[in-house]
C-alpha cells in the first residue's frame, strides 16, 4: 500500500509526465503490430497510380483531374457533393501564368497546380476549407504566443 502511494505521488510531478505518456503511447502502439492493418480501397478523393501521369507526359502531372478552365469541371470525389455547388471548378482552374507554363514544359505540374487553382487548393480551400481555417489559426496562435514571449521577455533588452 505504501509503495502504491509512492508511485501515485510520483505521478504528481510534472517532469515525469511526458516520459510516462511516451511510455504508455509506446505500449499502445505495439498493439498496432498485432492487429490486421489494411487499406480500404474505397476512399474519397482517390488519385491515380504513382508516376502514372508523369510517365504519360501529362504537363499537369501529378495533379491533373480533368476539366477545362471556366468551361468544364474537374472530377472530385467528395464526401458530400450535394453541399458543394461549385465542386470541380477550382480543380479545373489554371491561372494565366500557369497556362503559359504548362504550354512550355512537362515537368512543372506541381507548381502549376499549386498556384491558385488545382486539386489541393480545392480540397484545402473549398471542400475542406474549415481545416485550413484551423490550420492557419494554429500557426497564428503559436506565433502570437512565441512573439509575445519573445518581445516581452526573451528578446527584450531594456530591463
Amino acid at each position: 500500500m505504501k509503495s502504491i502511494g509512492r508511485i501515485w505521488n510520483s505521478l504528481a510531478n510534472p517532469d515525469r509526465i511526458p516520459r510516462l505518456y511516451a511510455l504508455v503511447l509506446g505500449i499502445v502502439l505495439i498493439a498496432g503490430f498485432l492487429i490486421p492493418i489494411g487499406l480500404n480501397d474505397h476512399q474519397l478523393y482517390p488519385r491515380p497510380e504513382p508516376q502514372l501521369q508523369i510517365n504519360a507526359q501529362d504537363p499537369l502531372a501529378p495533379y491533373d483531374r480533368g476539366g477545362v478552365t471556366f468551361e468544364q469541371r474537374g472530377i472530385v470525389k467528395a464526401q458530400y457533393p450535394q453541399y458543394l455547388p461549385a465542386i470541380g471548378e477550382i480543380t479545373a482552374y489554371l491561372s494565366p501564368i500557369a497556362m503559359g507554363v504548362s504550354g512550355t514544359t512537362l515537368y512543372y505540374g506541381t507548381s502549376i497546380y499549386s498556384s491558385p487553382g488545382g486539386l489541393i487548393d480545392e480540397i484545402l480551400y473549398y471542400t475542406r476549407g474549415f481545416d485550413t481555417v484551423l490550420e492557419s489559426s494554429i500557426l497564428m496562435m503559436a506565433f502570437v504566443i512565441a512573439s509575445f514571449i519573445a518581445l516581452n521577455f526573451t528578446m527584450r533588452r531594456d530591463d
Binding site: 474549415f130 496562435m141 503559436a142 504566443i145 509575445f148 514571449i149
Partner: peptide, 29 residues
C-alpha cells in the same frame, strides 16, 4: 465550441490541437 459540434474527425483533431496550443499560451506568459 467548434470541437463540440464538428462532424469530422480530422477537423476535431485540429480543434483539439488548437486548444492544446492555446492552453500552453495562456500560461506561457
Amino acid at each position: 465550441a467548434g470541437a463540440m459540434v464538428t462532424g469530422d474527425i480530422f477537423d476535431f483533431t485540429l480543434f483539439v490541437c488548437l486548444i492544446g496550443i492555446v492552453n500552453i499560451g495562456i500560461v506561457g506568459a
